[in-house]
Simulated scan of single mutants.
Amino acid sequence: MATTHEVIPEYTPPDFNRLGLAHAPVVQTAAAPKDGVLPKNYHATSNHPEYVHLGNGEWILARQSRMDSVMVLRGRELEVVEPRRVRAGDPVVLGRTENGEEGIYLHISGFEPLSEHFADKFSFRNRGTRETPFSRSYDELYQVLRHDRDTGYIVWVLGPAVAFDMDSRSAMQGLIESGYCHALLAGNALATHDLEAARFRTGLGQDIYTQAFQPMGHYNHLDIINEVRQRGSIPAAIEELNLRDGIMYACEKRGIPYVLAGSIRDDGPLPEVIGDTYQAQDAMRVHAKMATTVIAMATQLHSIAFGNMVPSYHVLDDGTVRPVFFYVVDMTEFCVDKLANRGSAQAVAILTNAQDFMVNLWNNLRG
């Protein structure tokens, strides 16, 4: 069995003496002029580890740094905050440089293996594409999930395609029931079609095994939404309708938290769907702060949104810094390319359909 260090790369913090930053300027702050408004020259954070200099060679790491937020420094306490959450008078960190010139240091190579330093500067096939064999990615993912099942926080971001197939839906249920999911993020569609499958054995009116259209099947997802709304909640509907399988059933059975974020296109929606965008964002950020592994599958906009919330690292209770693994499972490179373009360069693509991925994963992790 692989050791923790073989599964989770060790973090190498910056050596500020070697970098010539022992006597760098002390980081500066300025008071926010009003609620939700930042002072001039504020520092916008990335999703990489960022340090600020308090003086006398003392640098502290911002916990849970993420993109497009700011740092608020109160004494020796450094908090990363979304700009809309800043309050008048908050001491916001200032500076637009990243190499210590203003007491801020951005560290991008903490998890870089030693071999990276000896790699050729030019190489072919250095990004995951449709031509990439993903055997190594799968093997690493199996190890990471086995490790994080017991010691980490695994977050799934799912699109409805997972619920349209009997095998992938059953595989996701098995993974949840086996402890490989600590939180589920989705939209109205995933929950609706999963409950539709539990009630009618269809997904958007198609049989979830044969894919054959069922008579009047296009009513099924609307009917299940109506039945859930009549009962007031998903858990009440599961109980009263005697639904006994599926993704939502497994979440309720295991007490797994889920966030269903609404969209303009939603039918219904189900009672648990959060219609306010910023409330949904806040609910998702709770899990972004705890995530150690993320699997985002078959939902491009949701994957990109959550990718922008997730740090590239996680600070454990004992102060150990470890990477956050982010896997994007989709049929095309678009989603992972978009994430990379938005700063989430740690996203790893596995290009395949949701059904094949789920069945492969479950067959290797079950038992």
Results as ranks from 00 to 15, higher is better:
M1A: 15
T3D: 12
H5M: 11
E6N: 11
T12A: 07
T12N: 08
D15N: 01
F16A: 00
F16Y: 02
N17S: 15
A22N: 10
A22D: 10
A32S: 14
P39C: 09
P39E: 06
G55K: 04
G55S: 09
I60L: 15
L61K: 10
A62Y: 00
S65H: 06
S65I: 09
M71W: 05
M71R: 07
G75M: 10
R76C: 04
E79Q: 13
V80F: 01
V81N: 06
V86T: 11
R87I: 07
R87Q: 12
R87K: 13
A88H: 05
D90E: 08
L94D: 03
L94Y: 03
G95A: 05
G95Y: 01
G95E: 02
R96A: 09
R96H: 06
R96K: 07
T97L: 09
E98L: 08
N99A: 10
E102S: 07
E102T: 07
G103L: 05
Y105C: 04
L106K: 05
L106T: 07
D120P: 07
R125M: 08
R127H: 11
R127D: 09
R130N: 08
E131Q: 12
F134E: 06
F134W: 03
F134N: 08
S135E: 13
D139N: 14
V144T: 14
R146E: 15
H147F: 15
I154M: 13
I154Y: 04
L158E: 10
F164D: 10
M166I: 14
D167K: 11
M172L: 15
G174C: 08
G179E: 03
C181L: 14
C181R: 02
H182T: 08
A189C: 02
D194Y: 04
A198I: 08
L204I: 12
A212L: 13
M216A: 13
G217I: 01
I225E: 03
E227M: 13
V228P: 05
R231V: 02
R231M: 15
S233N: 02
S233G: 02
I234R: 00
P235D: 03
A236E: 12
E239N: 13
L241M: 15
N242P: 00
L243F: 06
D245C: 11
D245N: 10
M248A: 05
Y249T: 11
Y249A: 03
G255E: 10
I256H: 08
V259R: 03
I264R: 11
R265S: 15
D266H: 04
D266S: 09
D266W: 05
V273D: 04
Q279L: 14
Q281R: 13
M284N: 08
H287Y: 12
K289P: 01
M290S: 14
I295L: 15
M297T: 15
F306S: 01
V310E: 00
P311R: 01
S312P: 00
S312F: 07
Y313H: 06
D318H: 03
P323S: 12
P323K: 08
F325W: 09
D330A: 12
D330M: 06
F334N: 13
V336S: 14
D337M: 13
G343Y: 04
A345R: 13
A349H: 01
A354P: 06
L361M: 12
L365H: 08
R366M: 06
R366N: 14
G367H: 09
